[in-house]
Simulated scan of single mutants.
Amino acid sequence: MKKILYLMVVFPLMVFAQKNQSQLSKTNGILYTMPEESEPHEGTWLQWPHEYQYGETYSNRLDETWIAMTEALVRSEKVHIIAYDEDEKEKIEEMLHEANVSLANVDFYIFPTDDFWVRDNGPIYVRDRAGKLLIEDWGFNGWGKKAAFTNCNAIPSKISSAQGKTRVDLNSVMINEGGAVEIDGNGTLLTTKSAVLNSNRNPGMSQAQAEAIFRKYLGVTHFIWLNGKAGLEITDMHIDGFARFGNSSTLVTMSEDDLADWQVPDDDIDKLYQAKNKSGKPYRIVKLPLTKNAVTTAYGKELGYKGSYVNYYIANKVVLVPNYHDVNDAVANAIIQKLYPTKEVVGIDVRNLYANGGMIHCVTQQQPKQ
């Protein structure tokens, strides 16, 4: 009798467990998949610059760039603006009104922030196996504790609560900035070891461990690892400054000379040009120039280095491209326009933003449509 009861109770559980394990193995351990940037957006997130961290002059020099981004984006998607407090919200509304930017597609969230690099600290939207949109909250520690980060690290949690979306808390799993990883939408991830496997982010983490995490939470199964260069600038060489996936078959980067000027290691340049997708097929390489001249800000500061156009942002009907009042602006805009013929390329003046180390992609974050 006991044997019969055992078979009636335990055997079905064993079958269920085996079936469940079999289904899990078929997914290669993947729980969530990150939509590629060019997929249709519900909206774009912006963290508006404020005076509370670095002063009023700092934020005032950046407002025009945020106004220009908002003006271009509201034509075809929502713009979710994070304002530090109610006073900042009123200030932003007034600036947008004076610039004749419609607020019909704009909404505001009042959350204190340390800075405006929402690509790195903001929510990463992913889909579960049923297609439901969730928010992943990866750890953010100010690019290895080089800058204040406590307020910014809390942003994904606050957005998930405000939107009523399920939050996947990865703060104790991995420090991972959005600008550190590029996905092609077809199972491949491109990144630098200097920005991920750095002891200032993830001490002791191996490449295999990082890959298992990315596989599970971003849905990628093929990896292109560049070495990068730690300590060169605050991000320890984020990939989105010099190499992006234009689409599932195209890699957007620079010429060999320009990559060397960007201080990309020689071995990494070779790896980029030889990169293949998960099926073993080489990517089509599209090369954007650097600016012809070293960048000078709108307030006259000579930065002493050239600007990258690779750090662009793909929205629903526009592509926002960093521009520098340089002769190569038109060259880069035309190349990108050819790559996205159904969208309008909009050049955004990033000279003052660039003085702080980033460009358009660094300060935007997409929210895909459900």
Score class of each variant (00 low, 15 high):
196 V>G: 01
244 R>H: 11
236 D>L: 01
189 L>H: 02
245 F>G: 01
195 A>F: 05
208 A>F: 13
211 E>D: 12
246 G>K: 04
242 F>I: 01
193 K>C: 11
261 D>V: 08
258 D>C: 08
254 M>Q: 09
228 G>S: 08
238 H>M: 09
264 V>A: 12
247 N>C: 10
203 P>E: 05
249 S>I: 07
231 G>Q: 05
255 S>K: 07
192 T>K: 02
237 M>G: 07
208 A>T: 15
188 T>Q: 01
264 V>M: 15
252 V>E: 02
260 A>P: 08
212 A>M: 07
256 E>D: 07
256 E>V: 12
234 I>A: 13
246 G>Y: 06
206 S>W: 06
208 A>V: 14
234 I>K: 01
220 V>A: 03
214 F>E: 08
229 K>F: 04
246 G>Q: 08
227 N>I: 02
222 H>K: 15
252 V>H: 04
236 D>T: 05
206 S>N: 11
215 R>G: 13
224 I>F: 03
235 T>L: 11
249 S>C: 00
233 E>F: 13
246 G>P: 00
238 H>V: 05
193 K>E: 14
223 F>D: 07
265 P>C: 03
262 W>D: 01
223 F>I: 00
193 K>F: 07
196 V>F: 02
210 A>Q: 00
198 N>V: 06
265 P>Y: 04
210 A>H: 06
262 W>V: 02
264 V>D: 05
253 T>R: 01
213 I>A: 12
217 Y>F: 14
263 Q>Y: 02
202 N>R: 06
215 R>E: 04
194 S>A: 15
232 L>A: 09
228 G>C: 07
230 A>V: 03
217 Y>H: 06
262 W>H: 08
264 V>G: 02
254 M>E: 04
188 T>M: 11
194 S>N: 04
208 A>I: 14
244 R>L: 12
251 L>G: 00
240 D>V: 05
241 G>V: 01
231 G>W: 09
243 A>I: 00
232 L>C: 03
257 D>N: 15
196 V>I: 15
246 G>W: 02
236 D>W: 00
191 T>M: 14
